Amino acid sequence: MKTLSLLLFLALPLLLVACAAPEVGSSNEAADEKESDRDIYTKGRAFPDMSARRPELRPEAVPARVRYVLVDDATVNAVADQLDAAIQARDTAIFGDTLFVLPGAWDVLKVNGARKVPDVTPISAFDLNSPDAARRGAFASKTEAIAALAEAFFNAATSEGGYTIRALRSGEMAEWWPFIPFDIEEPLYVVETEGGRYRLIVSCNREGEIGTLDELKALPVTY
């Protein structure tokens, strides 16, 4: 199966934006408004009051070079509850129609039951600090493949019994940033297993569907 090139992997955010672009002949104001909805934070810009969020869902300060996109507190709380309920019930319906499994998560899911998943497309992701070191991930759009990956995710999340759903810490943002070609955008969580074996990154849309998975401890330290 053909591996997606680095160029395609890096272009994915642009493709997603293009899919959401207004129709020909419509006003550009809609596109401008859409971009203005993305509340982007970088180093030195303090987060607003987050007292409406549960404490564990409040991210730490954004480090250098990282771009972090906030969404409203109610969405962050609600999607975290949906994620928790889905893990408890092993409900694969929380996954969307497509799923990107980035290299850290791919390594972890393979040892948690996803070694032989049908109909996945390999993707190559590159550490921007070490461009010669390609790492393999996977993309799935078939129902059976997503269901198999979801089961492996549930296995990993519950592998030590309990787990915590929380926001990213500053060091984790810096750790993950070199491996991704997109902004860190909420709703996004770390599912940390009780004994610390895994720190799974779970990226959702605002309706709560999971679209991207990664795992921090399986990635090389680059910061």
Rank of each mutant, 00 (worst) to 15 (best):
M1K: 12
T3D: 11
L4E: 08
L15T: 08
L16V: 06
C19I: 14
C19Y: 14
A21W: 15
V24I: 11
S26C: 06
S26G: 02
A30T: 15
S36N: 13
S36V: 12
D37G: 11
D37W: 08
R38C: 11
D39I: 10
D39C: 14
Y41E: 15
K43S: 11
G44T: 03
F47K: 15
P48K: 06
D49R: 13
M50D: 11
M50L: 15
S51P: 07
S51W: 13
A52C: 12
P55G: 06
L57C: 03
P59W: 04
V62E: 08
P63I: 03
R65T: 12
L70I: 03
T75M: 14
N77G: 09
D81E: 13
D81Y: 14
D81L: 11
Q82A: 11
L83Y: 10
A86S: 07
A86F: 00
A86G: 05
Q88T: 02
A89I: 04
A89F: 09
A89R: 12
T92G: 01
T92F: 03
T92L: 05
G96E: 08
T98E: 05
V101L: 03
V101E: 05
L102M: 10
G104W: 08
A105P: 00
D107K: 07
V108Y: 07
V108P: 11
N112V: 15
R115D: 14
P122G: 10
P122A: 07
N129I: 02
N129R: 02
S130R: 07
P131F: 04
A134L: 13
R135L: 11
G137E: 00
F139D: 01
T143H: 02
T143A: 01
A150G: 02
A152F: 06
F154G: 03
T158P: 00
E160M: 04
E160P: 08
Y163F: 14
Y163Q: 12
T164V: 15
T164P: 15
T164A: 12
L168E: 07
L168Y: 07
E172M: 09
E175D: 11
P178A: 09
I180A: 06
P181S: 12
P181W: 02
F182K: 03
D183G: 08
P187L: 06
L188Y: 01
V190C: 00
E192N: 02
T193V: 12
T193W: 01
E194Q: 03
E194W: 02
G196D: 09
G208F: 01
G211S: 02
L213D: 00
K217Y: 04
K217M: 05
L219G: 13
P220R: 04
T222N: 09
Y223K: 12
